[in-house]
């Protein structure tokens, strides 16, 4: 079976510095793969090579068997791979509907003059959010009035709405309080149940064990090991993150 995403021997050097030396793994539909590792282990560099922000020095990325390497970030997004950044890339002063459609807003014509169709965009946002199990309290209110978890949900809803098959999340719970972290973990479960493949970057052990189907531990730009959460424990993961030699 062809994996949804196949990452094969990725390597990236900056000047003489090897940020990523040799990273390979696969992601299947409905699976959450956690990339764990300490700061500087190469997690973000790997993600940026997948999303097209960096071009790898060596190695390839395939989606459903089709080569992705060499494509622009826009082309990677339209191939169905969405990256959700820590800053969420939301416009705080706009309502959820406009954020969902940002850059692809819907208009309708009144006497031949185009007007934004705010109502349709709001209704769609409420609908997509409901599918993610989130009730939008006031669809006309700007998203800055919403909780951190709800805001994260909008970013995820945008990915879903535009048919993402793979969602990459970079430390999605880093800036959130505990109840909101739980909301995000629940969202990840929902995405999985819809068959979306997820790559989650984290160095928070409870998150890693809660979300992962597989844990890929990176250390010094290499895969230090791969475990299922049921086959390992905190201690072993930490030891692998610190560089396996300890």
């Amino acid at each position: 079976m062809t994996p949804l995403l196949k990452i094969d021997g990725l390597k990236k050097t900056f000047g003489g510095n090897e940020a990523v030396r040799d990273v390979s793994f696969e992601v299947n539909p409905g699976e959450c793969v956690v990339l764990a590792g300490d700061n500087g282990a190469g997690k973000s560099t790997v993600i940026k090579m997948v999303s097209g922000v960096y071009q790898p020095t060596d190695g390839k990325v395939y989606k459903n068997g089709t080569l992705l390497t060499g494509k622009s970030p826009e082309a990677v997004r339209s191939a169905g791979i969405e990256t959700i950044y820590q800053d969420l890339a939301l416009a705080d002063n706009l309502d959820p509907g406009l954020n969902l459609y940002l850059g692809r807003e819907v208009t309708r014509r009144v006497f031949g003059i185009p007007f934004l169709d705010r109502k349709k965009m709001r209704e769609d946002a409420v609908e997509v959010m409901r599918n993610l199990g989130i009730v939008v309290p006031d669809p006309a209110a700007p998203v800055r009035d919403m909780s951190g978890g709800q805001r994260q949900a909008i970013a995820i809803a945008r990915a879903i709405h535009w048919q993402a098959e793979i969602v990459i999340m970079d430390e999605p719970t880093a800036a959130l309080g505990v109840p909101e972290q739980r909301e995000v973990m629940a969202l990840i479960e929902r995405l999985k149940s819809k068959g979306v493949g997820i790559i989650l970057i984290s160095h928070n052990l409870p998150d890693i064990f809660a979300a992962a189907d597989r844990i890929i531990v990176l250390a010094r730009g290499m895969v230090a090991g791969e475990r299922r959460p049921t086959e390992t424990n905190d201690e072993e993961i930490v030891r692998m993150m610190m560089g396996a030699t300890l």
């Binding site: 989130i134 309290p137 919403m146 909780s147 978890g149 709800q150 109840p179 739980r182 909301e183 629940a186």
Partner: peptide, 9 residues
């Protein structure tokens, strides 16, 4: 359950 206790200001 968790989603229902979504916090709103």
């Amino acid at each position: 359950d968790m989603m229902n206790e979504v916090k709103t200001k």
